[in-house]
């Protein structure tokens, strides 16, 4: 019963905050922005607000966090409430958990973002080239991607990590390459729909080169779907990195990250009956992952809905 009350309470607060945020955006922004945000649903506003909070927390982690990322204290395995210096307690080697949680966000988000950008550069360039040049290049790239996509992504990632060894850099590269196959498929399809347009034919018949075609004619028309896709890809990459780290194969110590925090703290869940705050520690890290992903998805969902609505 109390749990239900808590949930309702949280939902009400979230709705109120999102409403206020949207009202503030409409009030502050110039006219085109006003029109855009006036029709934004509350969930999307919530998503946007959360993304802003996460990004600021990640950027200003050194300012917000009470201690340094790898700072070790003589008090280890402190439970929340044991020591006023450590709000959420300390881990088995004496690092402040609140600090680790904040830095974990910074690392996980930053690495996922970097990986997604890499995957996008790789996939989008190859996809646009395949669609514009066509012929053997398209065949070569498409068949390669088909073969790479015939193995489930997590499984392939694990195989490659076995081979290249466990390190953060390896993980970033492996995921970027594997995820670029998905970006390739989408950007090739998007560009493929644009390439058949008469204005591309007109530019080709004028004698324009590949660079002009891709950057001046195709890219401006491909940006909206690609931005939405970037949001979705970020979610996938973020979840994949979290999963790998949870398995102990992703982001490596001493970097803090949410996936491995969940694994390290998971035993506390069994204390739920007599120490609810302690039990919620692993859920906090896992929930932080879920909350960011869901926020991005809410915003992407709204963008896709707008795009499909405008087409009709």
């Amino acid at each position: 019963m109390t749990t239900l009350l808590y949930i309702v309470g949280i939902l009400v607060v979230a709705a109120a905050a999102s409403w206020l945020f949207r009202a503030a955006l409409i009030a502050v922004l110039p006219r085109p922005g006003k029109l855009l945000f006036r029709t934004m649903p509350l969930v999307a506003s919530f998503g946007l607000l959360m993304i802003i909070i996460y990004v600021s927390a990640a950027l200003f982690a050194p300012v917000i966090a009470p201690y340094g990322e790898a700072e070790v204290f003589d008090k280890f395995n402190a439970l929340p409430g044991d020591d006023p210096r450590f709000l959420l307690g300390t881990d088995q080697i004496g690092r402040d958990l609140l600090t680790r949680l904040i830095y974990g966000g910074r690392n996980t988000i930053g690495i996922a973002f970097l990986t997604t950008v890499l995957a996008f550069l790789l996939g989008a360039i190859a996809g646009f080239l395949a669609a514009t040049v066509g012929g053997w290049l398209d065949q070569l790239l498409s068949r390669t991607v088909d073969a790479l996509m015939a193995i489930p992504q997590l499984i392939f990632a694990l195989l490659l990590i076995t081979i290249f060894g466990q390190s953060t850099i390896n993980m970033i590269l492996v995921i970027a390459v594997l995820d670029s196959t998905r970006v390739f498929r989408l950007s090739r399809a998007v560009a493929g729909n644009i390439v058949v347009m008469d204005y591309i034919e007109a530019a080709k018949l004028r004698g324009e080169g590949l660079g002009y075609l891709i950057f001046r004619e195709i890219l401006p028309n491909a940006t909206p779907p690609l931005i939405a896709e970037f949001g979705m890809r970020f979610c996938f990459v973020f979840l994949l990195i979290a999963a790998l780290s949870f398995l102990g194969l992703g982001i490596q110590p001493p970097l803090a990250d949410w996936g491995s925090m969940v694994r390290d703290l998971s035993q506390f869940i069994n204390y739920a009956v007599f120490a609810p705050l302690t039990a919620s520690l692993p859920l906090m890290a896992a929930g932080a992952i879920a909350l960011l992903t869901v926020s991005v998805n809410f915003v992407v969902d709204w963008m896709l809905h707008r795009a499909s609505g405008l087409k009709e």
Binding site: F246, V262, N270, A272, L283, T293
Partner: peptide, 22 residues
């Protein structure tokens, strides 16, 4: 959307919390 956005281990621990511990 919320369910899709949650890592599998988050859902797993929530289920453990409510259906195995509590």
């Amino acid at each position: 959307l919320t369910s899709i956005s949650s890592p599998e281990f988050f859902l797993a621990y929530i289920l453990i919390l409510f259906l195995a511990v509590v």
